[in-house]
């Protein structure tokens, strides 16, 4: 009786162990497969089309004859919208993180943190829709534009989407600063603001930079909301007040109409590769800052 039990236990152990192993391996396999697929499809473009013309071309005319797959306007579109949103989100995020982490009374702190995290739970399509009916007309009116579907609308919208990441990570970074620094500063006669400004922020700077990087990563990969409110004109942007088209929006908008196996189709995957490399680099930088923080 006892030995049957033991054998049974051993079988269960074995099955569980192998199942967990398989799950772990599978996740890696999927990532590799996705990457290989992306590479294979994307690089197919360059059988017919010069990589230089793709990377440095300033015209995105995928369905004219002959087509032109210059990624520059799309890249700039993404960069402009992203930079704009970071310029908005970082000061707001730093301010909010300082308020939540250092200034607000405890009860309010909890409410604020929950609210910020709730913001992260709103689907981006919903935010995009709200942006379309509220922000876009407002931008048009305030800046006296012909259309409110501009880069700046996208930037403002994306700033809101990046806020949860930025605020909660920055708040963590501030919280991780040893309180002995704070006491040291206060014992030297520093006021609360001087303590935050001269000690807490410099001490938390690595973590705060990581927060910014992850915020950028979040923003640059965002698709639906941007597609809805940035106007999607694939010109080279010269100001924030123009319609732009981002890389993500291009893929999303054109994937449906591109004929499978055509250059247009491959070119969208090539954009995917570029996007992948950018996000990867950003995440790597963020990881570097986080790592530096945990070592310090």
């Amino acid at each position: 009786m006892k030995s049957v039990r033991r054998i049974w236990n051993r079988i269960v152990e074995f099955v569980i162990e192998k199942a967990i192993f398989l799950a772990g391996i599978l996740s890696i396999v999927f990532v590799v497969l996705i990457f290989v697929f992306l590479l294979k499809e994307g690089l197919s473009l360059f059988k017919e089309y010069s990589p230089l013309a793709f990377l440095f071309g300033t015209k995105w005319y995928p369905i004219s004859h002959p087509p032109s797959f210059g990624i520059v306007p799309l890249l700039l579109g993404s960069v402009v919208v992203t930079l704009g949103s970071i310029v908005i989100a970082v000061p707001l995020g730093v301010g909010a993180a300082i308020y939540v982490g250092e200034v607000a009374p405890v009860w309010l702190r909890e409410i604020l943190k929950a609210t910020v995290e709730f913001l992260a739970a709103i689907p981006s399509i919903v935010l995009g829709f709200i942006g379309l009916v509220t922000l876009v007309p407002l931008v048009k009116q305030v800046f006296h534009l012909q259309t409110g579907l501009t880069a700046i609308s996208g930037s403002i919208m994306l700033a809101f989407m990046a806020m949860p990441t930025i605020v909660s990570m920055m708040e963590d970074a501030l919280r991780a600063v040893p309180s002995s620094y704070r006491y040291g500063a206060i014992a030297l006669g520093a006021t609360r603001w001087q303590t935050i400004w001269r000690v807490m922020l410099p001490a938390a700077s690595s973590g705060m930079l990581a927060a910014v990087m992850l915020g950028i990563g979040r923003v640059i990969g965002e698709t639906m909301a941007v597609m809805m409110i940035t106007g999607n004109a694939a010109g080279i942007p010269t100001s924030l007040m123009q319609p732009v088209r981002t890389m993500t929006a291009t893929i999303a908008a054109e994937m449906g109409e591109a004929v499978q196996g055509s250059d247009h189709y491959f070119s969208l995957f090539a954009i995917g590769i570029v996007l992948f490399i950018i996000t990867f680099a950003i995440n790597l930088t963020a990881a570097f800052f986080i790592n530096r923080r945990s070592k310090a």
């Binding site: 040893p178 002995s180 620094y181 006491y183 040291g184 500063a185 014992a187 000690v199 410099p202 001490a203 310090a296």
Partner: peptide, 9 residues
């Protein structure tokens, strides 16, 4: 203080 607490500067 008990533990030296120079600022990370």
């Amino acid at each position: 203080f008990q533990r030296p607490n120079p600022f990370p500067l």
